[in-house]
Computed example of a mutant assay.
Amino acid sequence: MSKIRVLIIEDSLVVRELLKHIIGLDDRFEVVAAVESAEEGLSRLDALAPDVISLDIRLPGMNGLDATLQIMQRRPTPIVVVAANVDDDELNIAMNALRAGALSVVEKPVGVTNAAFESMARHLCTQLAIMSQVRVVRQGIDRGLRFGTTAEPPPPPPKGTRYAMLGLVASTGGPQALTQVLTGLGPDYPLPILLVQHITASFLDGFVSWLAGVTPFAVRIAQGGEVPEPGVIFVPPVDRHLRLAGGKLALSDLAPVHSQRPSGSVLLSSMADDLGRNGLGVILTGMGSDGAEGMAAMHKAGAYTIAQDESTCVVYGMPQAAVKLRAVSEVVPLPGISQRLRELSGGRA
């Protein structure tokens, strides 16, 4: 079996050598090159033909965001952003790189003597291996805009139902999809929004700040006890499940579901219990099957559920799992989801 070809782009010699050491110790990988600038990586991209790229964010000359855009336009290749959780500027670039087509962001490993080194190194290698298998396509910063909307008009919204809340679940490719959906909903969207986005724990605060900056909503990390309100997106804190109970937000330390905590299935299942047919559930691009069982619970309760269609997903895993469970009221291409949600919730299309 051939090894996974990895290109490392990292300007620090110390970190570059550390990454070469970590990745080189894993028998799954072959480091085809380790370069100090995005310009050098781009100039050798066709010759090296990597299966996956480990990309630093703060680089001399072209930064990680611009490098991501160039890579996705010239030779689409899975990108794992390797960033230090140091300041808002770096986190903002990292999140925009995810919007531009990078698949995952992981924390830059610390020195070998640090207690967290082994777990960080293992997580990096796992992400590189998983993401190397993702088929990426040529794209710009709003990939979904390159796709048409539904070829046929969707069926009319169910009559007699007043939806009370929207639940969103996303994973790989999620920041890109969420930006398009949430921007399309507009600042006057009438329903509260609860969101589970799988992301490396150390980047949650940066993700929240970034999402609030690129969408028309306030974004808050749930503390428990809040009553969801329109205009605000609530996300779970690190390593806690988010639930809806009695119209208020609740946090849980229960075991991970499908290896995820927070889990989209936990959130959506609680919405099924609390709202019945008055909930809206959407499952977006992502690897694995988290969220599918929660969608099934909502669908069984009479709620309306939407899955992103395969053609506009970076990874069709989670939506496909929901479709296979017959948990989906409608499958919609990414550009049409916000319009459909506005129709369903009483906002103008």
Rank of each mutant, 00 (worst) to 15 (best):
S289V: 14
V219A: 02
G24M: 13
G291Q: 13
L128K: 11
I71S: 00
I57T: 03
I193C: 05
G174C: 09
A245H: 10
L244T: 03
S119P: 10
G336K: 00
T150V: 09
V232P: 04
I337D: 03
L98Q: 09
V82T: 00
R326F: 06
G174D: 11
L25Q: 14
P157I: 02
G160I: 05
V332N: 03
P256Y: 12
S37N: 00
K248G: 04
Y189R: 03
I233W: 06
E310M: 13
L195M: 12
R243L: 14
V105N: 06
V112Q: 14
A245Q: 12
M120G: 10
E10C: 08
L69P: 03
I130E: 13
K248T: 15
V169D: 01
Q176P: 06
S37K: 02
G317W: 01
P154G: 06
A84Y: 07
P153N: 05
Y304M: 08
R277P: 06
A307G: 01
S132N: 03
R16G: 15
S265L: 12
S311A: 15
F217R: 01
T183A: 07
V208I: 13
L98K: 10
Q127D: 00
L128T: 09
V32E: 01
S338T: 08
P76H: 08
S104K: 15
A303R: 00
G247F: 00
G281P: 04
P230W: 05
Q70V: 09
L284Y: 11
L325D: 03
Q73F: 08
A94M: 05
R240Q: 13
A212C: 05
V227S: 14
A49I: 07
A255G: 00
G224W: 02
A34V: 01
L103D: 01
S43V: 12
V14A: 11
P237M: 13
S43G: 12
A100F: 04
L242M: 08
A170P: 08
L25I: 04
S345K: 05
N278K: 15
Y316K: 08
V227H: 13
G276T: 06
E107T: 15
L55H: 06
L48H: 06
Q73L: 11
F207T: 04
M72Y: 12
T215V: 05
A301F: 02
R220K: 15
V328I: 06
V214Q: 08
A164F: 11
Q339G: 10
T149K: 14
